[in-house]
Design a binder for these strands. Structure first.
Lengths: 350, 350
DNA sequence: TTGTAGGCGTTATCAG
DNA sequence: CTGATAACGCCTACAA
């Protein structure tokens, strides 16, 4: 026992020397690769612990050509949605005994490219969610020696797996529900303009309107950015409309909550005066007043499935058939739409 | 141009060969280290782009002994709190042009140890938030060749920097406020039993009670776990108490919202029948009904500061004085406590 | 301004 | 069962 505290950098060589064996043997016990005499194995483990040795992961991945890590690129870390995605990813990654290299806030193409570059050599595969960068410019940056899963991207390239939420379908079901309950003037609080999900949700909104014989109107489409404050402002804008919409479909739950807050402050009742609905079904949704009618999305499932697909591509190394998954959504009718007791609306044809 | 698509593994050697220079020169242009003829520099960049070359980060960190990455260990990824912490960390890390290796859900000691081991060689420093693992057992696992910042840990070791929220102070101020408003029976919905923050908030709660001459009572302390559902159940339990508490202090906002929901369902008015307050001031807090009175914490600041401390320790390599920061909190009085118009309570002595 | 060569800490392939 | 030893891809003196 030469360095009791092991204060500097203790390598596999130190352990080998101390144990009177070769580095190969030490490597074997730490990887369970190849046979090692139980006695020497125990001694090596013991000495490694005394020296506080831990394998250097960088060296390991360099040599083994596997990193045991997945890279994740997200546009932003804001709000319950991304939180849930990451959580789903993390749980799945742990199930596969892997790790996570996280990078976020990449809306510019150059930022995505930079983040992608840094991932090289550190990850075995990449999960990329970048709803704001347009598709064509994105594909040029993607590495071709690593498997990539695209999340909620407006891109369906045969070179990559993709997973997305049925945004349009969920929105259409939600708005269809409001229409089925008798509403004729339904407003929308949209998400960020360049955001793929937001656009799809808007598309579903418009489709539902048309399917019910209602022509979408520009002044019904209030701008938003997925934040509570945007919902608040949108509701104020809605109140200024004449004739005033009787229902408000927010592109996510946070904005719906913000909108309800503004309506209440303005002396309006939800749902009696204005029905309000959201999208995502975040945990908080059922606990606000009134409980929020919304579109349920298995958000963490989105992340988990991405990991599973990636791991599958990783193991079935060469021959992996790309897939394009669409995660279904479902209507969750609570109090904020005011039509709990009506029959569920039938999904209108596209 | 030998491999137009560069479909396999292109290394620095390939670029060097193609450009007719040595690997050293290529390395220089990619690191801006040492002088390189502008012409050859341009040619190398050009060829690297053609070949789609990107340096292998594992090799780079092995050789350079720096990874440009910080490791983050969190107990869980649930809820707005952790979401905000990560966001703060990520933003700060980007400011420093570094990256993030994330790992979570480590409540067991062995899990923390494992995660710590895997970080070796991949990170330059570690941010660890582990409020559930007891302090002594934790310190044994910490690496001594890497700088570590402890977040919200019940540990104040001279070997590590620590940052924590003024949990007790914030709780005491909040409960003091309720008492100053005339409440005498104030209940608590606690956080996870083994959680350090949760204990501190309870300590502040009790201290405030005693400071006002009110003896804490066991039946006032309702169990919780930081989830909306726990708050919901706690409120139901509160309603069964006789005499019934007139105020409820939830150890976080999510539980406060859950509690308000249960009270409303039971036909009680907030704050008239029962005042409800929370902790954290998550974005949603101001938009619930009624707006939540809570304790404001600069959550993302907690993460950002951790990064700054770590980076400071990294640059001032040898001589870095450990510090123990405490993030202040502040009272945010909204509608849910029913005492908006009263004067702010004076902070009671401990 | 450029090239050579040794080393970073592991793994993996052979012989023994 | 164990030990040399050649990669892995890059950085960095040192030399030219």
């Amino acid at each position: 026992m030469q360095q009791p505290g092991g204060c500097v950098r203790v390598t596999i060589r130190d352990v080998a020397r101390e144990a009177g064996v070769s580095v190969a043997t030490v490597s074997r016990v730490f990887n369970d690769s190849g046979p090692v005499n139980p006695t020497t194995r125990a001694r090596i483990r013991e000495i490694a612990r005394e020296l506080r040795y831990a394998p250097n992961s960088a060296a390991r991945s360099l040599s083994a050509r596997r990193t045991g890590t997945l890279g994740v690129l997200l546009p932003d870390l804001h709000g319950a949605f991304f939180s849930e995605v990451i959580r789903g990813i993390d749980l799945a990654v742990q199930r596969h005994h892997h790790h996570l290299l996280l990078s976020s806030s990449h809306n510019e193409r150059s930022e995505v490219a930079a983040a992608l570059r840094v991932m090289r050599g550190r990850v075995d595969g990449i999960i990329l969610m970048s709803p704001a960068v347009d598709a064509e410019t994105l594909v040029a940056e993607l590495p071709d020696d690593l498997p990539v899963v695209l999340l909620n991207c407006a891109l369906r390239d045969e070179r990559f797996d993709t997973i997305e939420i049925d945004n349009a379908g969920g929105a259409q079901a939600m708005v269809g529900h409001l229409l089925a309950c008798g509403h004729r003037r339904v407003a929308l609080v949209g998400g960020p303009p360049r955001n793929h999900d937001a656009r799809e949700r808007r598309r579903g909104y418009r489709a539902a309107l048309r399917a019910a014989g209602v022509e979408p109107r520009a002044e019904w489409e209030l701008p938003g950015d997925y934040s509570e404050g945007a919902g608040h402002r949108a509701a104020l804008a809605l109140l200024a409309l004449d004739p005033r919409p009787t229902a408000l479909f927010a592109a996510n739950d946070a904005m719906a909550v913000g909108a309800m807050s503004a309506l209440r402050e303005a002396g309006m009742r939800v749902p009696e005066d204005v029905a309000v609905t959201g999208f995502d079904d975040v945990p908080m949704a059922r606990y606000v007043t009134p409980p929020l009618t919304t579109v349920r999305v298995a958000i963490s499932e989105l992340g988990a499935r991405a990991v599973d697909v990636l791991m599958a591509a990783l193991t079935r190394d060469g021959d992996h058939r790309r897939g394009h998954d669409v995660l279904p959504t479902s209507l969750v009718v609570r109090g904020s739409c005011g039509c709990r007791d009506r029959p569920p609306p039938s999904r209108a044809p596209p």
